[in-house]
Design a protein around this nucleic acid. Structure first.
Lengths: 181, 181
DNA sequence: CATTAATTTCATTATTTATTGAAACTTGAG
DNA sequence: CTCAAGTTTCAATAAATAATGAAATTAATG
């Protein structure tokens, strides 16, 4: 199975972007490949399509599984493993978002919490703590929000998404209501 | 000027996180250092504090400027350049967010747009285009939203942020209103 | 305009990260 | 249990990325 030029270009683009999205080139390519391929693929097919070693594919699969982006399927009478995206595009974007929050925000939040528990012992530390406090609050807000978004029903989410520039108006509206009551 | 243990630990943490935030270790450290240091610092002070070469600091400054995270200040009668964060914590987070959108989303959106203009020439391409279409729409929504958030006044933003779990209720409320009218 | 303090550049070197492929391991079938 | 198809591991190697520091450049001062 060979990719058409256009599809190949997309897969290569995913490779280029890979490291910006949180993984590396190969894993970006694998992810892109599995997304645009209708049928689940075997590890060997992936290796062939991308001209990379079998071992590298194995690593990549492990990584993609740790991101919960792919799932394994079996075909009766065939002992090979077939890989496919673990959900819709939306699901996958969500997973990447969640996973990146875990890697990019949580560790810092934890460090800041620890730091802010101890009292500052001089002026430098006092100023530093003020700054850290601001960062802490910002990250907490982001965290609260992302978990809030996770909790919304798909319909609510869609409603929110479609809102777009309407969000400002809804906010003003809400504020008015709250002031009255 | 030497850092206290706690402040040093914070700076080193910023280094560890650096690559996850979109830059590299040194630049993460520089960023953290400038944030928790009350007074603007010279390039040499930065190099000393982090035990890195002067040249490396120069590179880092250039990079941090390209992210619009730091600004240069001058002290009368002193020809050295003094560096300081370019805004509040909130400003900086926003800049990072914006810049990352530019690097992580825009190029893909552009590729997808181009791809979707050309008609698919076979079934594989047809399926691939469906998937790309979904990705495209998702990224467009994200883009629209982030620019929407940029446009909100600070008060509106704060109001939105504080909303937290209230967002669901506001949405339901909005839907009710819309249905009535 | 010469001096010199300060900054930037960039070829070289060091470090980190990714890839290969052969060997070890796992697993299902006979 | 044995075989063979399939997968994983990991030491060795390759590739990419970052850091150094000396030389070149810039710019303020008298």
């Amino acid at each position: 199975m060979t990719l058409s030029d256009k599809n190949f270009a997309f897969v290569m683009h995913c490779g280029e972007m890979g490291s910006r999205w949180g993984f590396n080139r190969t894993i970006g390519q694998m992810c892109g490949l599995l997304i645009i391929t209708k049928e689940p693929m075997t590890a060997n097919e992936i290796a062939d399509a991308l001209s990379i070693s079998r071992g590298n594919v194995s690593m990549g699969i492990k990584e993609l599984q740790s991101w919960r982006l792919i799932k394994v399927q079996h075909i009766p009478g065939d002992r090979k493993e077939y890989y496919a995206p673990a959900g819709s595009i939306w699901d996958m974007a969500n997973r990447v978002f969640e996973e990146r929050k875990k890697r990019e925000i949580d560790p810092t939040l934890s460090l800041l919490r620890d730091n802010l528990l101890e009292p500052a012992t001089n002026d430098d530390e006092k100023f530093a703590q003020q700054q850290m406090h601001e960062i802490h609050d910002l990250l907490e807000t982001v965290t609260k929000w992302s978990s809030e978004l996770q909790r919304l029903s798909p319909e609510q989410l869609q409603s929110l998404m479609k809102l777009g520039s309407g969000i400002g108006k809804v906010l003003d509206f809400k504020d008015k209501i709250l002031k009255k009551s």
